[in-house]
Design a protein around this nucleic acid. Structure first.
Length: 419
DNA sequence: TCTGGGGTCCTAGGACCC
DNA sequence: TCTGGGGTCCTAGGACCC
């Protein structure tokens, strides 16, 4: 059967969220920064037109920002997460076959649907009316081509934000004018290497011999080439596998030089990671802790290290994870450095009903642990206050810079916009 | 002065098995 | 002097995604 995929992708998503409750920013240049106000991670069209690149550190373009009075925002993930949920909910009205691919995009399996372009236009106008965020829709027989169609819909205004690539002739036309770097799965390295052998457009890549691609690159790239030719290799996946790894890490607003403060931040990350783990209803076997100085600091000595350890048995109990994380931290801590970032990773997961219990721990004790962690999570999510473990540092004074944070308009009573 | 925070998948190579 | 052939598992590192 012929497959049909649609990719719905929000336009400049974070910027659109910031504009939602600030309509006066509609035709004004807007950027959103990464955590710690470091890099630019979202740009409105006006900013793209100024030639400001994605992921560039803010300080490098400060002159342009000031000159054009660009409105600058710190990331407000509470807001973006909520708006994203609304977009996805609205999309579910159009098909139950929805794969939420990232915070701002989703694949829809529209196999068997007709009048695709009309349907896509309806999706666009509905999302805009119900949520207020502009989206573009790309339609094609494979996900990679749907991505490409979406690129076309965004790039060429005359398309009205919808491109249907069901027709192979139209595919070819778009492939011919698309730089190979825009293809899903082709990153910086591959772009460079492809350029050396004269492959500069998506069409040239699509016309390459798959055996040659596999030999010189990988099966991943081979799949990309096949997908560009309309052969489905990347399946639709509306019930993703549970996570295999959970990470919690941050760069610091200010460098940390003393043992106890860095230890407290590591505990903070470990506790947060354990909480995420319980949210996934999984147990972790392996814990990894890393600390590092800034790789950009020219004058300070550099140090970066990590340590990995295994829990006696898989657990999601914050106390077990904290105990191991602090032990690992002590094994890599070095005095005399200016630390810029640290983090905790959990891995090697299993589900609670698969775990091999410790011969020497009575089952009743296990049940108690679970209840204690549940109680902690319930209290911390209630909004009524916080409880934490001894090693943590509840006052997050080491935390990130967020100088331009907008209100949590849709998720806090005291931040509701006034009309 | 100032450089994000998550994830995934694949491959190569080493250790080890019989 | 001659030194097999077939595997598995694990890890580190590199590429990619948003």
């Amino acid at each position: 059967m012929n497959r049909t995929f649609a990719l719905v992708d929000c336009n400049n998503f974070y910027c659109s969220c910031e504009r939602l409750f600030r309509p006066e920013l509609k035709n004004v240049p807007v950027v959103v920064l990464s955590n710690n106000d470091g890099c630019i991670v979202a740009r409105s069209q006006e900013v793209k037109d100024l030639g400001i690149k994605m992921a560039i550190p803010l300080f490098k373009v400060m002159d342009l920002i000031k000159k054009h009075q660009v409105q600058v925002f710190s990331s407000n993930y509470t807001l973006y997460g909520d708006i994203s949920a609304r977009v996805m909910q609205a999309l579910e009205e159009f098909t139950p076959n929805l794969e939420v691919y990232s915070i701002d995009e989703a694949f829809l399996d529209l196999s068997g649907f007709s009048d695709l372009e009309e349907y896509a236009k309806k999706i666009r106008s509905t999302i805009y009316q119900h949520v207020g965020v502009p989206v573009c829709v790309g339609i094609a027989p494979t996900k990679t081509l749907a991505k490409l169609a979406n690129y076309g819909a965004k790039k060429f205004k005359l398309t009205g934000g919808v491109v249907d690539l069901s027709d192979p002739e139209r595919q070819k036309k778009l492939l011919a004018i698309t730089p190979v770097s825009e293809v899903w799965g082709v990153g910086r390295k591959h772009t460079e290497n492809l350029k050396k052998i004269g492959i500069t457009t998506a069409l040239k890549l699509a016309q390459m011999d798959t055996r040659q691609i596999r030999r010189h690159y990988s099966v991943v790239m081979e799949r990309t080439v096949r997908e560009l030719n309309g052969e489905t290799c990347i399946e639709f996946d509306d019930s993703p596998e549970p996570k295999q790894q959970i990470m919690c890490s941050r760069s610091f607003g200010e460098r940390i030089t003393d043992y106890s403060t860095l230890r407290e931040t590591v505990c903070e990350f470990a506790a947060r990671a354990a909480e995420k783990l319980r949210g996934e209803d999984q147990l972790a076997h392996v814990v990894n802790v890393f600390i590092r100085t800034s790789p950009f600091a020219k004058h300070d000595p550099n140090y970066s290290n990590s340590a990995t350890g295994k829990l006696i048995q898989p657990s999601s109990d914050t106390r077990n994870i904290l105990a191991l994380a602090t032990k690992l931290f002590d094994s890599i801590w070095m005095d005399g450095y200016c630390y810029a970032k640290a983090g905790v990773m959990l891995g090697d997961f299993c589900s609670p009903d698969q775990v091999q219990f410790d011969l020497f721990t009575p089952k009743a004790a296990e049940a108690h642990r679970d209840k204690l962690m549940q109680a902690v999570d319930t209290i911390n999510h209630s909004g009524q206050g916080q409880i934490w473990f001894g090693g943590q540092r509840p006052e997050k004074d080491w935390f990130m810079k967020q100088a331009h944070l907008s209100p949590a308009y849709t998720t806090r009573w005291d931040s509701l916009p006034l009309v």
